[in-house]
Design a protein around this nucleic acid. Structure first.
Lengths: 136, 136
DNA sequence: GTACTTGCAAATATTTTGCAGTTAC
DNA sequence: GTAACTGCAAAATATTTGCAAGTAC
């Protein structure tokens, strides 16, 4: 919450109602929304907000390490205010995206490094299937 | 190679020079090219080929299970004629994408299923870091 | 011969950019 | 007061679609 305010202040970025609204919209959501979805969610309360501002704010948040960008193979990017490295599970039917928290997956990069000559910095793990609601 | 011909014939799809060229361009490459890159690679030898044809062919190949679509967090899709489930390693500096083949990663989906209520069908594992050439 | 395919051009979708006006501080 | 930010419109980028002409079989 106030991580945002603190970090914006530290980095000499202006604290604007738009940035606060965009960050809160993302942080309050478990849906891993894309820019368009955040924009539509805010439109009723912020009728003059623009999609460009949403994009610009999300890019800033991403640079500040406040959000992570995820791509589940759609043609748009989704955002997650949980910036820890964690796998995502995607339902092929309802497109729901859920977080998976497990320390087990944190150590995969070590195994990757033992298999190739890369120095691994981060990872994106995405599992696709059918969620409990969509299994008939 | 002739998997393509055989499969197109089986599915009553026409065997055209464009489809053959596009599949071979992908299959001969280790670069995990996107549609644009394949198009540019073919342009000298096939001056009248169109980008739309490249997209349509790649979509067909993907439906036929001849190629897999991968997304490494760019704003375009890349293609891989290796259709087995395998992790990719991406160099953050030179954007090189390499395959990693190791049975260990095949069994992650079982662990995911034990952690959530999804029936997992496939997975996309992407590790980001610095390749041997780019480590100075 | 005919159904499928190609290639063009136009449409659509997503994201970025330029810039004039506005706002945080 | 000023540098940063917003919101609009236009541009850039990636992908899809409609359709007339061409091609595989």
């Amino acid at each position: 919450m106030d991580t945002l305010i603190k970090l914006l202040r530290e980095k000499n970025c202006k604290i604007t109602p738009q940035r606060i609204a965009i960050y809160h919209a993302l942080n309050d959501s478990k849906e891993h929304p894309n820019a368009e979805a955040i924009y539509k969610k805010l439109a009723p309360a912020y009728p003059t907000i623009s999609l460009a501002t949403v994009y610009k704010s999300l890019e800033l948040f991403s640079e500040l390490g406040l959000v992570q960008v995820i791509n589940i193979g759609e043609n748009s990017f989704r955002y997650d205010s949980n910036t820890t490295s964690h796998p995502h599970v995607v339902c092929n039917i309802c497109q729901r995206v859920e977080d998976l928290d497990n320390e087990f997956f944190q150590h995969l990069s070590e195994r990757v490094e033992s298999l190739c000559d890369y120095k691994i910095k981060n990872q994106q793990l995405c599992f696709y299937g059918t969620c409990a609601n969509c299994i008939v």
